[in-house]
Every structure is written in C-alpha cells, then in structure tokens.
Design a protein around this nucleic acid. Sequence first.
DNA 1: CAGGCATGCCTG
DNA 2: CAGGCATGCCTG
Lengths: 716, 716
Amino acid sequence: MDTRRPDELWTDIDLLLDDLQSPTEVTERQQVMDPSSKIVATVPEDGPDLYTIQAPPPTLPLDFMEGDQINTTKPLPDNATTVTPLPDNETTSNHFINIKEERDENLPTSPEQSPSPPGSEPSPPLQQQQQQQPLVRVQSAPHLPQSHVSSAMGVSSDTLSFSSFPNMQKVMMYTLQPPSVQTNIPTLIMPQPSVQPGPSGVSGGNSGMGGMLDVPTLTDSKGEYGFTVLVEEKERTTKSPMWLMSLVTNKLYTNINKAVPFEVHLGNPPADRSQLQVRIVPVFSSPQFLRTNVTRCPNHSAPNDPTNHDFPYPEYVVRADHPLADYVQGANGRLAVVVPLDPLQDGPDYTPILLRFMCLGSCVGGINRRPIAIILTLENNQGECLGRKVIDVRVCACPTRDIKTDEQAAKGTKRKGVNTQETLPMYRKQPRLIEPKTDSEEDDQIFTIKVRGAALYKFLLGVKNMYYESHPDYAQQYPDISQHSVSSSLIHKKKATKKEVRNKQETVSELDNGLWESVTGSPTNSDHQVDEPPTDPLETNTNNTSPSNRIVQSQLKVLLVERNGINNLGESDVTNGGEYKHLQPQTHELHDLPLVITTTSSNESVTSGSVVSQPSTKVFPRHVPVMPVSTYQSTMRRVSSEPTRTKQTPRILRPPPSASPASHSPGRMVCIRTNPIKIERNLSPVMREGSVSPGSKEMLAANVLSERFYQDSSFT
Amino acid sequence: MDTRRPDELWTDIDLLLDDLQSPTEVTERQQVMDPSSKIVATVPEDGPDLYTIQAPPPTLPLDFMEGDQINTTKPLPDNATTVTPLPDNETTSNHFINIKEERDENLPTSPEQSPSPPGSEPSPPLQQQQQQQPLVRVQSAPHLPQSHVSSAMGVSSDTLSFSSFPNMQKVMMYTLQPPSVQTNIPTLIMPQPSVQPGPSGVSGGNSGMGGMLDVPTLTDSKGEYGFTVLVEEKERTTKSPMWLMSLVTNKLYTNINKAVPFEVHLGNPPADRSQLQVRIVPVFSSPQFLRTNVTRCPNHSAPNDPTNHDFPYPEYVVRADHPLADYVQGANGRLAVVVPLDPLQDGPDYTPILLRFMCLGSCVGGINRRPIAIILTLENNQGECLGRKVIDVRVCACPTRDIKTDEQAAKGTKRKGVNTQETLPMYRKQPRLIEPKTDSEEDDQIFTIKVRGAALYKFLLGVKNMYYESHPDYAQQYPDISQHSVSSSLIHKKKATKKEVRNKQETVSELDNGLWESVTGSPTNSDHQVDEPPTDPLETNTNNTSPSNRIVQSQLKVLLVERNGINNLGESDVTNGGEYKHLQPQTHELHDLPLVITTTSSNESVTSGSVVSQPSTKVFPRHVPVMPVSTYQSTMRRVSSEPTRTKQTPRILRPPPSASPASHSPGRMVCIRTNPIKIERNLSPVMREGSVSPGSKEMLAANVLSERFYQDSSFT
DNA sequence: CAGGCATGCCTG
DNA sequence: CAGGCATGCCTG
Ligand SMILES: [Zn+2]
Ligand SMILES: [Zn+2]
C-alpha cells in the first residue's frame, strides 16, 4: 500500500522533475500514445525503430520517489528479455525523445563520497556530510558500484556484496544492461530529498514514507565500546512468554504490542555512558524491500486505534517503553525510536531496553508478511554510529507455534554443523503480493505501448524501470514481464536442480525461489551488485579503492504539447548528473501543464494499427450505464477553466480538493485537457471506470512527460 | 476498531454532557477512585452500601456515542450477576451521586412517535418528522418497548420481535433489570446528533460512523410498485464469475471490488419511472451489530489506496457503477449510495444496477468477519421509501470456495423441506473478537471499582452499560462480565441439549452459540425485546397499540472536584428525559474542567483496603525504567499552565495538538490536573505505560465525571 | 481455478 | 495454551 499522501507525491514529482532536467534535442514533433492510460505525448522523432514496452498495468505509472535514479542505459539492449522490437512497417509516425548521455568525469569517483555540485567546495567527510546533507545516492542497477551514504541511523553507505550471488541481478533487478557491462553506465542520479522531520504523529502524515530509502546496513558491528544486544532465549517470567528467541533461526518471535527486553551490552564501555543512546530502526530484511520504510499499517496507525489514544506517533512500528524515548524520522526518512542508554542497574551488566512492535508481521498495508529486522545502533549524543546490531523479528499472533514451525523447517533444511548465521535464513514461504488486490480484473493485463524510435523507447524503459524500482509493492503485484520471464526460468531450473548442494549456486537458488528471506547476517544487498568490498563506516577501511560511481549527464529533449490550440514552446536545460542539492521541497512554478487525453481510435495522429486496445464491452456485465461524454467533458471543463497562473508555465495536474458532500460521483474525474479533445463513446473499461484520476499514476506520468515536453520545447 | 476521530469523540462528550445534566443532590464530599484509571472523582455521599462494578478493562471508558441512552434502572438489581456488594466496613468515606428518577408522564406513549419537547407542537407524522429531524431514539434495555424512528433509507422504526427468542435478552443485552420488570423503567434518552452530511471523502472523516445507529429493517416489502431485486444465480458471462448467488444460503458471494449486477424489478411500475431511485445501504446482519455502521476498513479507506485515487468517497463500502450515483450519509448516519432508476433498456424487464463491495468481509477494522447485508430501498425523489429488499452478502477472496462451504454446511444442518428463508442462516462460525488485539496483556483483566452508595453505583452501572451498548466492538473484546456469565451458562446448557430439535428452543440455542448469524428474513431485532408486533411503515398497521416507551427524567447531582485548591462549585440542572433536540453540535463553554489524577496508595482519602490494584512490578519484565515523577509533573504542568478561559467554567480535557517532531515521548502525556497531585513511584503498569492519555477513555470518563461534579457543585 | 499454505483468532 | 477453523493469498 502506498502510504504517501497525494501532496507528497506531488512533491516527489517536483523533485524528480527538478533533477531530471537535461539538455535535450528536439527534432520533430508528433504524438505517441499510451493506449491504456490515454495519455498522448508529443515527442521528437529521432529513431527508426519501433519498440514495445510491455507493462502489466493499464497505465505507465510514474509517481516515482525521490532518491531513485533513472538508468538511461546505452547501448540499447536489443537482447533484453522484455524488448519486443516491432516491425518498422508500422504506420505510426511518432516522434522521439533524443537522449544524449555524457559521462561526467568531474564527479567524485569514490562511492563513499557524495559528489558535490560543480563549483561547490569539496564534500566534507562522510559522517559530517551526512549530518548536514540528508542526501543519499541510491543506485538501482545491480552492476553499478554502490554509493550509498551513511546515515547516523545504522543505515550506512557501505553495500553488501552480491559477489556470492552472481545471478541474482537477473532475478532481483530491473536493468536493460547486459550483466557483462560493468562500467561506463550512464545513470541519472537523483538526490534524496531532505526529510522534514515533521510531526510524524500527524494524522495521515506518512512523510517520506512509502518511497525508496537508502539500503540499510545489516551487518553487526561491535564498535569501540563492544556494543551488542542480546535477547534472552525465552521469557521465563510467565508461563505464556511474550517473546521467544530462536537460536535456530536466530530470530525473535513476539506478539503485537508486547514488551520485549533487549539487553544492551557494552563490552568496553566508555567512562561516560550518559552520552550514549540507542537507535532502533525497523527494516525489511528481504532484499526487495530493504529500501522500503517499515511503518504501521493503516489499521493500526489510525488515530482511533486504542494503541494511539495515548501515543502521538501512531505510525511507528517500534515503540520503546522508556520515558525519554524519542520518536524521530531520520534523515533517510526512516522512522526510529531513540532511547538514552540508562545507567547500569545494580544487578546485571547490561542495560535493558523494552521494545514493543505495534504491528503484526502480517498486517495488510503495513509489514504485510514481509520479514523484518530491527537495527539497533549505539550512538553518541551527536548521533554518530558507534556500533550496530541487527536482530530479525517476527511479530505474529502465535509466536510459540511459529517458532516451532520455523525451527522445524530450518532443521529440515539446513545441514547440521552449518551455522545458521552464515546461511540465508529462509524458513517460511513468503507471498509475492503486497498490495491488497483491489484492482479490478481489467487492470491486471499485459498492455503494449508502441514506441517508435530507440530514444523514446529507452526513455520510457528507464521510466518504467524507475517506477518498478521505486514501487516494490507494485512490482510484486505486477511483476515486470521481462524480469519475470528471466526469474521464472531461473526458478524452474534451480528448483529442479536443488539437491542439497550447499554452495553459492544453491544460495542463488534460494534467492530465486521468490521467497523473501532475510538477508540479515549475510553480506548481501537488495538490488545492487557491487565490485567493491563492503565498507562499513565503523571499520577502518574507509578508503575505497573500487571503481567509482559513474555519473553521467543524460540529456533529453521533449516537445511541448499543444495548449489551447497554441503551441506553447519553452525549454529548460537542467544538468542533474550527480549534482546534489539540498532538497527542501522547492516550489516550482511548473504547475499548469496541459495534458492531452484521448482514446485510441479517435486520435488520427496516432497509429492504431496493432495497438492492443481493451475490449470495451466484454469486461462489464450487461446493462452497464455508460457515462455520457458530456459528463466527462463538463467535469474536465470545470477544472480546466480555472485561472492559469502563468501562460508559459507548465501546469502540474493536482488532485482536486476533497470532494464536497454535495458533489456527485462524476465530479471525481478531474483532469485538465487541451485541444484536441477526442473522446469516443466506446471507452475502454479502464477509462470508463476509473477514468483518469487526479492522483493516479496516469496523471503523474502525464505530468512528468508533459513537464519534459514543455520545458524542452523552447529549444526547438 | 473505533473509527471516530478524537474531535468527534469530544463532540460526543459534549452532546452527552448536554443531555446528562440533571438536578442532583449533593450531600457530602469524598473521593471515589478507579484504581486502574487513576481517576479520582469527588461524589456526594448518599447511600449506605458499597458496590463493586467489575469491568474487564483497566479503565471505565466513557466515550459513549450520541444516540445512546443511559439506563439508570431502579430498583437496584442486587441479584444481578455482576453486582458484588462490598462489606460496609470499608474505611472508604466516599461521596456519591444521588440520582433521582422521575417518570415524565407528559411524554408521548407511542413508540412510533418521537416525543416532542415540552411546549412544542405535536410531532409530525413519522415519515416527515424523520426527514426533518435526524433524531433517533435508541433504547438498549431489551425488555423496553422499541421507539426507533423510521428513516428514509430503509431503516425504519419498526422493531423485529424477539418473541421467538425468549431468553435472548440474557445473552445479548446488558441490563441490570430483571426480565420481569417491563414497565416503569427509568431511562435517560439521549437524542441522536444531527448527522452532518459532510464530505465523507475527507481523510479520516468518519463522521457519525462508529457509534450506534438505528436498527435497520431487514424485511422485504414490495410496496405498491412491486419492487424487488434479484441477482442472477451465477454470472454466466465468464468462466470465473465475479459473483455467485446461492439459493441454498440465499446469499450473494462476491469478491472485493467486483461489479455485481442487481436486477431491479417493478412488478407494478408507475407511469413515471424517472422519479424513482434506489438506495443501497450496507448493514451488519447479525443482531449484535445491527446498529453499527458498515464502513470500509482503515486500510481500504486510506486515501492512498488505489481504489480511492479516483474516488472521493473512500469510506463507502458499496459503490455503484453509475454515473449519477450519489454517495450520501443518511440522517441516521449510515453511508449509502443512491442510484436513479434508469429507464428500461430494450431487452429485459428490469433495471440493472451494478454494485461493488469495496471491502472484504474479513477486513480488520471494517466489516471484520461480521456478516453483512445490503438493504435496497425504492424511493421517490422525496426519499420516501416505496419498497425494500434485503440481500445477504459475503465479500470474500474465494467466493466459489465459500459458497461451497456454506451450502454444504447449510445442507448438513437444515432438514429437507424447510425453507432456508424461514430459518436463521448460520453457515459458518463467527469469531467473537472485533478489535485487533492490540491491548497489552495488562489491559485484559478484571478490575474492581469500589463504589459506596447505591446511587453512584447505579449511575456508574448505567455508564458502563451505555459504554457497552455504544461499543459493540469493545463488548466483543471485553465482554461484560455479568452478561458473560449468564450467556456462557446458557450456551453450555443449550449446546448440550441441542439435539436437532427444530423449534424455538433450538433457535435460541443457535443464537447462544455465539455465532453472528444474519437475521435477514427473520423477524428479530438486535438488542430489544418488544412486546409490540413489528410495524413496518410500508404496511398499513401504522397505529401501534403497544405500551409506550417510558421516558423518565433522571436527576443527578455531583460534586465539583477541587481546582487549584479552591472548590469551584457550580451546578447545572438539565432535564433531558425524552426531550429531543436538533443536535447540531453545540459549542459548549465547558472546556476546562480540572481532573484529579492520583494513584491508589498515594491518596489518603481513598480507601485502599480491598481495592484490587495491579501488581506494579510483576507485569513488566525486569529492568523496566520507571518514568520519574518529574516527567509526569512537568508534562502536566506544561498543559495545565495554559490560560484558563473561564475560571468558573469547567474544562474538558482535550488531546494535545499533534506532537511536534521535536517533542519527546513524555510530551504525549498531557492532562490537566488540580491539587492535590499525588504521584507515587510505584505506579501501576497501566499508569506507567499508557498513562492517562489525552484521548483515552480514561480521560473521557474523567471529563464526564468531572463535568458532572463541577456543574452540580454550586448546589452545595 | 483448485489445492494448499499462512496466519489471525476462536474454542476448550 | 493447543487444536483447529477462517480466510487471504500463493502455486501450479
Ligand atoms: Zn498493523
Ligand atoms: Zn477493507
């Protein structure tokens, strides 16, 4: 479930657009249409080939999050699984986006350093820079070197190596790049937005949650103070223990909202313990969700939930039973609770910290059956990380049953003598779907986007990849077709040959099984294959000798769509390759971009030859009242008649204010249109039922595309 | 899950207080304490006896909803199951609330007529009055005559008879009244608030939802136009049907967000069909939840849920695929969709209406595995009901599986030849718990409230009953002990004797089984046993000859607690017996009532002799940092130092504004205190962990009690 | 779509 | 608390 609010999505888009701006060449104009989302974009023509982007959803969603990157790879991966070149004898005469890519040789080469904007002073040391700039460079192509920036929350920039899983990228990653290409990969690096550590207890305020975050470090590190955290194997106080710690699966099993004591041990404590604190961050431990924030489900984070009646941080999964517990949103956007390290009590040689997990691992819209872990980091009062401990956690209604199940599965699987810590834990099958299956049956189909020209095709592929990267949940529900075919074949092969061969190959096969095993204790990373060894800021190996992260300026030029019958041409050239900015969400004046909406057969300029259009009558039962065209038009007109702030300023479509009670349902369809408006009665089911929704992915995609077009049109 | 927002709760409290005001006699002052909630109330002393109110939760929650009533029964039910009279040798010298009860003989006697305020003109006819006054009198005691007011939504005032279930009241109801007492029951009738048909699509705006509503009419009525609604047995269009209609269970089985065609038949259609419309209201069909609104779960009603991206009514469970569908909140607070009756198409002789169910029947925090039905009412454009059809619905992920399961169970249970329509459907076991079990283990205990004096005891019992009535979910999770013991014994007996005796006795046994069977098609009512025959406004039997609903003015007098060391005495005398008001939420000046919070052993004026206090050290694991007293005090001081608007005006505690990110967790504990503030270190677990929360039930209870005390203190 | 698992929750 | 059911969802 996407927990972001619409306005946050818009901020994301703004941020994205701000960083996507690249010089682009426009050659000619025509229209390319997405038959499913009914979004028509006018793009320059540049290439001779017509490619097909296959996507399961009916739209090309594009509400990517900040912190992601577009991978505009070149050369074109004609051998990619999902690429379906169409014959050039198509009658489509579309235009194309010409994407020029340049490698920026001025960018810093060490992945441990964030690149500075051109002309700015050199980056400060990592730790301090992180404190000042909450920017994290994330990179999605697994074959690219890693460049995550450490945070003070136990989520650091060092990347766990995928070297032991050579084939994993085929399964986990969305890339058009052949695995052999390891260098000179042009990428668009988008900085992570500065996270407003706003009131996280605000109703519905999932600020910065739901998008992609940095990849957490899941390796333990005692640090100079000998920091470690233990959990007793079993609560012996009562007959019905509130938690269970399995030494077999090395996982904590507990129920929802039960206090679990964590013992904080300092083997080499400093003289002044009062300056120390412990930060607890829950993370998804499965690779595909490492970068997804762990928040409470909508059910449990509802302000009326009893657990929130006396607690202003309803969205924090982990709570600490400590009067000075601090609930913060880290610079990386993750929700964390920080507890000061209490002085040692009389008895034991450790400091206990009581934690509660406020959602079940099965909570729909929340953890959603994905394995989680908590990262406990020892910090000084400057927030610098002094040690780290990662503990797998399973919050379930029947810990005793589940620990039994898991341990039996683990014992049945693993060979004796092999330390569980060394192998990837995988004790229970995991589902693949994240979102509640609320989409109508019409949505889950294979749609085809015909694109003429390699440039636009690549651009759209990059957008598609970016969307998948930033939407792991969506990727779960609608797996990328290209990836799916690759991974499924791998899965089949591995499954057939899985014969207790405990080596790297089998480890891969376990990964390929589609299970969401935790990577805790294993030096792996979610979607990045790195050549460098993993570097931990806590370790002495700070100098990284690996090849640097290649930052490339991508240039794209798009064309403005018509607006009010007039071509409003304008351009914008923004270099974003590797440039980091303080991303306090900036107010953009680009709010009023027209959007052309049409259907397949009504737009003459769009080739409708082999476009896969939906059967418009078959999907619905009989006697469906068809919404009249007038309804559409009047609704659209209502909004489009709003005063345009700046004629030359593109407009980003925004969702309408919350519908008034008096408004009827047709009023919910709000979009801004330009000429030509072409609506046919034979609307596709998707169009008719959901239509183009204000906050929908279609709209976002349209905005981004249109934004491109507008900004670059003045170049022509 | 309580879906109300805190501010709505406050509104509820305001409304409640407004109606609870009754003349009260204050004799003396002392303090009665709730050892669990740490709320100390000063009450007048009036009675010699010390009673005990047992309640499972650690608090005496009091965020009752409007539309409920307090049943201040007299005489005292000493033989009630939960009543535990304490010996009078307790050292407690508490004060008491003196509750005077008078029967208002001027009130109308017909349950079909809403009583008018004294001096006002007679009530208009039922139908019209309902249109004007969205007030519904609800009554909780099952042995009382029914007085629900009809609404235009197919939810009418006629009550289904419980005559076939003579023992049901013992199981379903919370009453201290012996079943034999059928008359002269003093009751406090609270009018239902006027429902603001506000923007239901507003985030978190569950306006008026979550409380108790009127009891819907679940009987079919063709009306003059021969109205009925059919659903085809099975969708034959596709191989995987989106719905299934079982003729065995007479229930519709469908998946979430699938369009199901309902065929609206008019056997005797009028000349002008264009003035007709159909209203669809989902209701819980099991007796204990008949009066609970059916709304979407927090998960699915989240604005970021894909189903809400293009739809401004996220909380409506039922959607209609119709361009003119209107999503309204009826006068009774229920969410409904109204669809105009389209003209007949060429082919069939019926009008199809496509409906979608936007939550699974299992949705936590929503339907929550409770059986539902939809009530389809034919209306004219004045909203007058012209016909009614009730259809059971099960929204599930596997309709084919579940219909199979249900039909097998039905066939295995019922004897051949017996029409399913005539028997209570009960095909699958139903759980008893509603709320997600988020409460800590410390919460689910039996707590004891010692009360001295019959009056206060009765008052508190009434409050407890009212809370249970208005919180069916809570009643599910923490069943009323008195009711539980009665019902469980009944269940055991019935189960043992359940030997295929298909008569009334067995029907009762089915009810006693704790299952949530639908009452559709059966003339039953949820928690009311009525002597009158059921009256349907559609039927000719409009004149009701049954004994009238006895309205009684209850007078209560409470004492003000100390504030700032000074006794601010004031009183308020409000007659609320049977008086109906237009309840546009009124702004009360009673916002600043002090609240005395203390713990058991620290308050010398409270007798701690046999008070059941929680073990303060045993519940928590070892090494729990105890929140220091200073933290409490500073936090409390922070809020209590706010400017008091009116010295004489009681203050209602309000939740603090959403916590700022910089605030630490102790800041969440906000309460307004008066002297004496007595905090001991050995705080009970409840106090220490959750503490007194601003929006919690403890606070609400304290506010109400304090409000009483304040208003009546000037009498002294 | 059927079989079966995962997992919350009810029952005894 | 163990056994088992209810029910969403994954797999084939
Ligand atoms: Zn949850
Ligand atoms: Zn739901």
